[in-house]
Every structure is written in C-alpha cells, then in structure tokens.
C-alpha cells in the first residue's frame, strides 16, 4: 500500500493504481474531475501532482498517472475560459475565408509570448506553442497535425497567460480544414441516394 494526499484527504491505495482510482479509494466524490476513467481521452481529470521530493508540481491527467507513495494531488476545475467568441459551422464553410475568420475569432493568438507554458502543461506532450504558430501563420495543415491527439483538457488554455486558448485555436484549424473535405466516394453515394438509384429493401 502507498500513502497519498488528495484534495486535503490522506488515503492508502494499492500500489500500481492510478491517481484517479486512489481518489476513489480515498472516498473523494468523483463527480466533477472524471469521465472516461482511464482511457485518457475525455480530459476531465486534470490535476496538479507533486511527487515526493520533486522540486515542482506538474500538470497531469489523473487517470493516466500512477499514484506514488507520498504524492500530493490537487484536482483542477473545468476552467471557465475567458469568453471565447462564438462561431458556428458557417465560419468554416468558406475555406478561403477561414484564415481571416480565425484571426478575428482568436485575436490573442498573435500575442503569443513564447513562454512554452502550454507545452509544459500539456499532459499529452503535444507541441502546443508550435501548433499555435502554425495556425496563426495560416498553415492549418500543420496545426491540424500538431493537435491531432489533443483531448481538449484545457490545461494549455488554463496555463496560457495571454488567454489564447491554444487547443481551441488548434481545433478551429482542424475543423476549417476538415470542412473543406469533399470525398469522391461520399459524393457519389449521396448522389445515388438523392436520385433514388440506391435504396433499402426491408426484410422482416
């Protein structure tokens, strides 16, 4: 058994368990900072942990972090972001205007002070700051690739001193790029359906 301290509560947990399961074992209510319980894709279980003897705390996803003896843990709220300008899918529809729209919607994105806090905060090890640069320079393809495995935990947004919301910038780039996809096979199939050339015979 190992001893951990989570949100003010001391707990014993079996070795090899995750911080999230240790929190459950500690009797803490898992009603906010939890979702997928271990797959590491919902991004809800963001936390600060301080390992025993470590010089600093670090940002992690609790479901993906092994609990260690002497570890101290503080869960971080789902951050209410500085109000982000709303947009709907019509902002993505015109691929030629998407870059302009992004600069309008994310004016702070050009104010990056290159502190690299987002890179350090990212529990997935993405090159967040580079991704923002790629997006603001109009290279949506590169930005889309950089943010491909982003789980939208918002830790970069919370860590950004310029309120850039880097993950949302990256997602805009991804969405704008994707909305211009026109796969040939899909177009053909939709045509067949619209013209009635393809339908389904129901069988009991």
């Amino acid at each position: 058994m190992i001893g951990v301290e989570i949100d003010g509560r001391s707990a014993q947990a079996p070795e090899g368990t995750t911080v999230l399961l240790a929190a459950a074992a500690a009797g803490l209510p898992l009603t906010g900072n939890v979702g997928c319980m271990g797959q590491g894709v919902c991004g809800a279980c963001r936390a600060l942990v301080r390992r025993d003897g470590a010089a600093t705390a670090e940002t992690v996803l609790a479901c993906e972090t092994r609990a260690e003896d002497g570890m101290r843990v503080s869960f971080l709220d789902r951050f209410t972001l500085p109000r982000q300008a709303p947009y709907d899918e019509t902002a993505l529809a015109d691929g030629w205007a998407a870059y302009e729209r992004m600069l309008e919607l994310f004016p702070n994105a050009q104010n990056c002070r290159h502190c690299s806090g987002c890179d350090r905060a990212c529990p997935k090890g993405l090159s967040v700051q580079t991704g923002v640069m790629q997006a603001t320079s109009g290279d949506f393809g590169a930005a889309a690739e950089t943010f491909a495995l982003c789980v939208m935990c918002n830790l970069c947004a919370a860590a950004c001193p310029e309120s850039i919301a880097p993950n949302h910038v990256g997602l805009f780039a991804r969405r704008a790029l994707a909305a211009s996809q026109r796969p040939t096979d899909l177009i053909r199939r939709l045509h067949q359906i619209v013209t009635g050339a393809m339908a389904v015979e129901t069988t009991p």
Binding site: S74, L76, A121, L155, A158, A159
Partner: peptide
Amino acid sequence: SSCGQCPPCKTGTYQLATL
C-alpha cells in the same frame, strides 16, 4: 500576473482563485 512559464503557478493560482 503569473507570466505563464510555469504551469503549476498559472493553473495553481487560477484554481486557488476559483475555489
């Protein structure tokens, strides 16, 4: 005021403020 370099500082102070 936290400059952003150290995520525990930025996120930690925000979390303190939120609570």
